[in-house]
Design a protein around this nucleic acid. Structure first.
Ligand SMILES: [Mn+2]
Ligand SMILES: [Mn+2]
Ligand SMILES: [Zn+2]
Ligand SMILES: [Zn+2]
Lengths: 152, 152
DNA sequence: TTCCTATGTTGGAATCATTACAAAGTAATT
DNA sequence: AATTACTTTGTAATGATTCCAACATAGGAA
């Protein structure tokens, strides 16, 4: 699952953020860093049932909330009722299927620049002191296009 | 509150979408069209307590879900636990305060073009058949900047 | 290394937004 | 006016998330 370099990297990330290193935090962060499935709390619990069979879901919620506060992780809603989490290593945004909820990463050359432009423009217009953004694009994923028989 | 022209306009919107015109639907839509507060279900219930004192919150949920399906209204989360709703008359996006949750509308000349560019690019990259998008920018609103004593 | 304590984990209960359901009401069509 | 499918309503059920108190432990101090 999470290889050694991921474990080393995530250990460093925790220490850099002055977070106390517990096995739960380390393993959850490593899981997120090595899975780009945008998991829910339940997905994480299932994925780590071998490593941490006794971990309560409270711990996962606590841990993820801590990571979100430290901006290691972002929260995503795809309309299925539960929150999805994403380790935000490289800048990207999301395309979300309105039929099955599948979330995929999207980026392109110049995305970071566009993002910065958006934030600066928003600061000018609104007077907010900007700290981040979320962009989501909705539509039907390729599988659901076939499943629903829609034609382009 | 909602003036005559708003009532006429929203009546037409309901009919154009072949939605059965009930007092609840008409008044809720008119409320949304004339308030840009991004209300929650509770805010709407309070705001309409004079006009519709016996309306149940189930009705508000049902009605709003219908409007969202017909794309008259969009849902927004600002992290306070409940969903906010927005009648989407003119294209805009949102700046959301990370401290107090305040949501403000933002737009600029050329926003619709930028939006279309983003959607087309995302379709090319992901293969999704795009139907919409949400952009949110996070930060501290001017009031909270003062309240928290942050310096620019 | 051992001790100390602030912090984290756990599991179960509590919360609260949203949905499900069945009975009663009504908009639109005939 | 009669019909009927759709809507509203109140209440119960659901389910994700948070709260809480007891227990455990990471990491600094001695
Ligand atoms: Mn992602
Ligand atoms: Mn708005
Ligand atoms: Zn899909
Ligand atoms: Zn604020």
């Amino acid at each position: 699952m999470a290889n050694n370099s991921v474990m080393e990297d995530t250990l460093k990330v925790l220490k850099d953020h002055k977070l106390r290193v517990t096995p739960q935090r380390h393993i959850i962060l490593a899981y997120l860093a090595s899975h780009h499935n945008h998991p829910t709390v339940e997905t994480i619990r299932d994925g780590l049932s071998k490593e941490l069979p006794n971990m309560g879901s409270s711990t996962i919620y606590n841990t993820l909330n801590t990571f979100v506060e430290h901006r290691l992780v972002v929260e995503l809603q795809n309309g299925d009722g539960s929150t999805h989490y994403d380790y935000f290593g490289t800048p990207h945004y999301h395309a979300i299927c309105t039929n099955c909820g599948k979330i995929v990463d999207v980026t392109y050359p110049g995305f970071s620049k566009d993002e910065k432009t958006l934030e600066e423009r928003t600061a000018d217009i609104s007077g907010y002191m900007i700290s981040g953004n979320h962009m989501e694009v909705y539509g039907l994923c390729p599988e659901c296009q076939v499943k629903l028989g829609v034609k382009k």
